[in-house]
C-alpha cells in the first residue's frame, strides 16, 4: 500500500488517461441515450489523445522551435540538445488522430439525426420497441 501512492503520483498521466477512458467506455456501454453514448465515445478517444500528448513531454524542455535558425549570428554555432526540446512527433500524430475522431463524430451525429428523423426518439429502449413494431425485415 505504501508503494502505491508514489506510483500513482509519479505516473499520474497514465492514471488520468485510464480513468478518462473508463468513463468514456462506461458511458458507451451503460447509457441509454444515443447522444450520451456519442459523448462517451468522444471522451474515450480524447483520453488516448491525451496519452499520446503526455508521452511527448519532457521535464524542463521547451517547444521544438529552434531560435535564430534563419540568419541569426550564432545559429551555426549553437549546439542543439535534443533533451532541451519536447518530442513533437506524438503531437503531430495526434493532429491526424483528432481529424479522424472529428470525422467519426460527424458521421455518428449525422446517423443520429437520421435515426431521430425516422423514429422521433434517441432512447435505445424505445428504438428497440419501434423496431419490433416494424416487423422482422423491410
Amino acid at each position: 500500500m505504501t508503494d502505491l501512492l508514489p506510483l500513482i503520483v509519479a505516473k499520474y498521466n497514465y492514471w488520468l488517461y485510464v480513468i478518462l477512458m473508463m468513463i468514456g467506455l462506461y458511458a458507451m456501454i451503460a447509457k441509454n441515450n444515443l447522444i450520451k453514448k456519442l459523448v462517451g465515445m468522444n471522451i474515450f478517444q480524447t483520453a488516448i489523445i491525451l496519452f499520446y500528448v503526455s508521452i511527448g513531454y519532457k521535464r524542463d524542455a521547451t517547444i521544438p522551435i529552434i531560435q535564430n535558425a534563419h540568419g541569426g549570428h550564432d545559429a551555426h554555432n549553437a549546439v542543439i540538445h535534443a533533451a532541451d526540446y519536447i518530442n513533437p512527433l506524438p503531437h503531430v500524430l495526434m493532429l491526424t488522430a483528432i481529424v479522424v475522431s472529428v470525422a467519426t463524430f460527424g458521421v455518428a451525429m449525422a446517423l443520429a439525426v437520421r435515426i431521430y428523423q425516422r423514429y422521433q426518439t434517441l432512447e435505445e429502449d424505445e428504438l428497440r420497441m419501434r423496431l419490433v413494431d416494424i416487423g422482422p425485415e423491410k
Partner: peptide, 15 residues
Amino acid sequence: NRGPLASLNYVFIGV
C-alpha cells in the same frame, strides 16, 4: 429503417 441504427452500433464498436 434499420441501416442508420446498425451503422451507429458499428461506429461505437469500431471506434
